[in-house]
Computed example of a mutant assay.
Amino acid sequence: MVSNGLDLSGWAAPPGGREPGTRDGVHIVAVGRLAPRKQPVRLLKLLQAARARVPSRIPMRATIVGDGPARGQMERFLDRHGMTGWVSLPGRHTREEIAKVLESADVFVAPAPRESFGIAALEARAAGLPVVARAQSGVADFVKDGTEGLLGRTLGDLAGAVARLCTDAELRESIAAHNRATLPAAGSWPTVLEGFDQAYELARDRRSSSGTR
């Protein structure tokens, strides 16, 4: 399958940006439509589990950008579990507003197991953020565990990965430094065009071998 073509240059972190993990603690960000099929309440459970694993001396805050029919359910979960003080749902943002949120972030989370490609995660990766995602999702095509981020197969794995990045500043910064220095190949137009060339060549070979004119 050939991925979408994206111009990722506009997502690159500005030179001399914020020092990760400063000011008001480790900032975790997720971006996406708040639709029931994406199970956004599972993201809140992930954050809750991560907070329980991180020492209280390390401040954490999370921003979940997006809107959709599951927003009310998420707000009720946050109220019920006392998470409104550190998890915010600012609603839908423009591309420019998302870029500003990513500038202030330390970790990006993409927990959906059925993410076929993961455009938001790719943009966060291009912005220099360590990405936490499912090993069985399309995000694993451009995030290698321990290099561009951390991967896991279960919700518990992802909660552990977020907690690890919150507590291990050296690991968090080494991944961020790698991501800031290296734009991802996935989604870039040279890679996409090469993928189309290969797909057309494969189609021609199959047509020739079947004797189809």
Score class of each variant (00 low, 15 high):
13 A>P: 01
146 G>A: 11
50 A>H: 04
85 G>V: 09
197 D>K: 14
102 L>H: 04
87 V>S: 05
197 D>A: 15
27 H>R: 15
142 F>Q: 06
207 R>M: 14
55 P>L: 14
58 I>W: 10
130 P>T: 10
200 Y>I: 14
201 E>W: 07
166 C>K: 09
82 G>I: 10
3 S>K: 02
93 H>T: 00
52 A>L: 13
37 R>H: 12
88 S>G: 05
138 G>M: 07
125 R>I: 08
105 A>M: 07
27 H>T: 13
135 A>G: 14
6 L>Q: 12
79 D>G: 07
138 G>K: 06
77 F>W: 15
167 T>G: 13
213 R>M: 00
79 D>M: 11
53 R>T: 08
86 W>D: 06
207 R>G: 00
87 V>Y: 05
68 G>L: 06
81 H>L: 07
68 G>K: 06
37 R>L: 12
49 A>D: 12
1 M>P: 03
128 G>S: 07
186 A>G: 01
13 A>Y: 08
74 M>E: 03
183 L>A: 15
200 Y>Q: 02
161 A>D: 13
168 D>Y: 05
65 V>W: 02
177 A>K: 12
56 S>Q: 15
136 Q>Y: 00
46 L>T: 05
167 T>N: 02
29 V>G: 03
102 L>R: 05
139 V>R: 06
160 G>T: 11
65 V>R: 02
178 H>C: 01
